[in-house]
Design a protein around this nucleic acid. Structure first.
Length: 307
RNA sequence: GGGCAGGUGCCCGAGUGGCUAAAGGGGACAGACUGUAAAUCUGUUGGCUUCGGUCUUCGAAGGUUCGAAUCCUUCCCUGCCCA
């Protein structure tokens, strides 16, 4: 078994490339996009359509339903379950997605943190909300003076406090343990050879792609997709605060004018691609290839021929 | 032609004599990131600098003042109202 990661900013044609490669090399496609997991978020996440899914086996797409929320850890478990138990999986696995954190999880594994009970999470969240970051941060910094978490980063402070209160462990300790004792998390690392291909476009072209993609999403019923989720009572579902969905929610709540909706989505999408670049830029093992078909095909072919 | 409001850095916008290279927001750029990650958070954002400074900047030109984005004069432009 071999794997090919296809990563990079959104709207660069990664999914299309994945399809081409999977057909050409008789492989299958695995999702590594944090929104395309969700069953009811197809339009706004630009998930592959049925026609595309029929051409090549696609895994880990559209399988999570509200109010269930995905986590990197759960995704990693789902992925391992898939590669260990699904005998139909065909090599190469083409792993596509723009979510750097999830790509990292599949590739390098995650140090294991046992499940933290819901009450504690809710309680900490409420405490931070009520007493502010400072109090929570104080608790954190006294426990873990080395922490690099910023006082304003309420989400990370909360998570670190969960781990502290539940297990009396520091995030930095866990990280260090994982680094020193490779065995503990080795089992989650991707257990076969792989390459990472990065796809990016000139910013001006990408801007145009984003614009036409947004237009298409709106035309295809993005607003209705959101509306029906809200009608079903999922307005607070976390993934609805992602790019596109958030703006539509704002529009439905009357906080964005219809005329501004499209521009807002375009803007947020561009800002997303910026962050995706920042993430992937630091991974020096990614081979950045222009969407030049032959170049990519040769590169992949060479990799697949290595024993 | 008359009245009123206004012209501020990439944009919006605060400032109405010194503490102002000028609040705040947006955008842009750069960055962090192990269970929300399309989330969350951080830094920078006039030029030069030996980092102590220094030069240019708030529609334009003049003027008052030790000192002006802030006061005065004229001019140009924008919006609304009256002719």
């Amino acid at each position: 078994m071999k794997a090919i990661f296809i990563v990079g900013p959104t709207a660069t044609g990664k999914s299309h490339l994945a399809l081409t490669l999977a057909k050409k090399f008789n492989g299958c496609i695995i999702n590594c996009d944090s929104i395309q997991f969700y069953n009811k978020l197809k339009i706004g996440s630009a998930a592959p359509d049925q026609a595309e899914m029929n051409q090549v086996p696609h895994y880990l797409y559209s399988y999570v339903n509200p109010p269930q929320e995905m986590t990197a850890g759960q995704f990693l478990r789902d992925f391992h379950d898939l590669i260990e138990n699904n005998k139909d999986l065909k090599s190469p696995l083409i792993i596509v997605g723009g979510t750097g954190f999830y790509v990292q999880a599949l590739e390098k594994g995650m140090f294991n943190v046992p499940e933290i009970n819901r009450e504690l999470k809710i309680q900490i969240e409420a405490e931070i909300k009520e007493y502010g970051n400072e109090k929570a941060f104080k608790e954190l910094i006294e426990f873990d003076p080395e922490t690099k978490i910023h006082i304003n980063d309420a989400y990370r402070i909360g998570r670190a406090l969960e781990v502290k209160r539940a297990f009396n462990l520091k995030m930095s300790e866990l990280k260090m343990q994982a680094l020193l004792n490779e065995d503990t998390d080795n089992k989650f690392k991707l257990p076969f050879p792989f390459i990472k291909i990065g796809i990016d476009l000139d910013r001006e072209i990408l801007k145009q792609n984003i614009a036409s993609r947004t237009k298409m999403m709106l035309k295809n019923g993005l607003i209705d997709e959101v509306k029906s989720l809200i009608d079903e009572g999922h307005a607070d579902w976390a993934p609805l605060s992602s790019v596109g969905y958030f703006e539509v929610k704002e529009f439905l709540a009357g906080r964005i004018d219809k005329v501004d909706l499209e521009d807002q989505i375009n803007l947020s999408t561009r800002q997303l691609t910026k962050k995706q670049r920042t993430w992937f830029k630091r991974d020096l093992e990614i081979s950045w290839l222009k969407s030049n078909q032959t170049e990519i095909l040769n590169f992949v072919e060479e990799f697949l021929q290595e024993s």
